[in-house]
Nucleic acid binder design. Sequence first.
DNA 1: AATAGTTTTTAGCCATGGCTAAATTGTATC
DNA 2: GATACAATTTAGCCATGGCTAAAAACTATT
Lengths: 231, 231
Amino acid sequence: MAKNYSSEISNPLSSNHEDYLKAIYILETRGEQVTNSVLSEYIGYTPASATNMVKKLAQMDLVIYRPHQAVALTPTGRRVALEILRHHRLLELFLHKTLDIPWDSVHEEAERLEHVISEALEDAIAASLGYPKVDPHGDPIPSKNGEVSHTPGHPLSQSEAGRTYRLVRVLSQEKERLAYLGELGLHLNAEVHLREQAPFDGPMLVEVAGEEHALAADMAALLQVVPASAE
Amino acid sequence: MAKNYSSEISNPLSSNHEDYLKAIYILETRGEQVTNSVLSEYIGYTPASATNMVKKLAQMDLVIYRPHQAVALTPTGRRVALEILRHHRLLELFLHKTLDIPWDSVHEEAERLEHVISEALEDAIAASLGYPKVDPHGDPIPSKNGEVSHTPGHPLSQSEAGRTYRLVRVLSQEKERLAYLGELGLHLNAEVHLREQAPFDGPMLVEVAGEEHALAADMAALLQVVPASAE
DNA sequence: AATAGTTTTTAGCCATGGCTAAATTGTATC
DNA sequence: GATACAATTTAGCCATGGCTAAAAACTATT
């Protein structure tokens, strides 16, 4: 169980503690107020359980908790969350690139592995991948000292018709959704030509690898793109 | 948590359950009577805890338990144990070959990973390694349907002086011991020339990669060798 | 076969971290 | 400001799986 969330933390954290911290981090970066209900729904436990755990995390100085207020990570809590997130995303990329695990499956696998890899293994994986910056979904991989690079792009749904874009990030981890996108050829870095956008948030007509597809607006909203370099 | 110890098992097993089954399997194959004290000492918990867990495993039909008797794995229990052992050894080899993790470190890393990899990942690892038969210590990797190949060789301590052997297995997972052997050049498949064996179980004089070393008898007893092919 | 010594089991404690149900607090409306 | 409704917290239950200490059961010796 040799973890190394450094100095500050005395007793080792369980997978569960780590999952809560990661959840809080993700919800925070989404800009949401991390209320008990938001957190408990995200993490899939009852509100009572979430309160319980949050109190414990507060005792360990990993979060700041005031009754009836949104939770917030402390600097230490954020460091732990980022370490786990780094594990997660490194693992996703590793599984995808080194073992050809499809991009729609890496998330759930990494979800378990992220809690049990040592620092040494984390380092070895990062080195073998050439210290990558993003995972197979385009999500940024936090650096070892907790920096998260800003990812560029804007939603395909808010893009100009008639232009070609490159897919740089997919804001979803849902297996089915990712599998569907994969079938359409919409992998990371795929080029998408936006033919037209139906009005009133209607579907979009896109061309990927020579094939034309209709894409629901809510799906397109999850696709972060940048103008294709060829343009 | 999607495991697939097939049909027979209803609720998923914890890492702990799996560790117990693996321990029982290993002790059984050592030819030992798996009594409560042997088991509890091996697994590092008190005898009372071991009794407790063994009873639970018995309820799940994974072991046969009669008070005051040695425990024995049921066919299902053995299948689970072998699956975990397969995970463990595949992971050891994978970590060593693909990520250059030293052979003295792979054991503890695999010890945690073995419980959380999916069947799909297990398969991908096995495929990427070309369906290997042994791990970095020469321990056999159980096949997917639970077959364990017999490993050849005899202890270096019971070998003939003046001959050259090839190291095919090391019967130890101790980090320090393996690190020491590694420094001596005694990796898997290394060639060892046995110069002489001091009487009364004294140390042996061996030559590895052009260098001469004295080797304690108890250390040599852990080294399984076969005559070098060149001979 | 009785006793001594060891091994194993039982009984019962503890912490963890889910849960439900009830109480409380906060918020919004009249 | 009272009242209704939602969100949160508290209280207390449960299972898990360690633990210690005590009881029970085996084994060996005289």
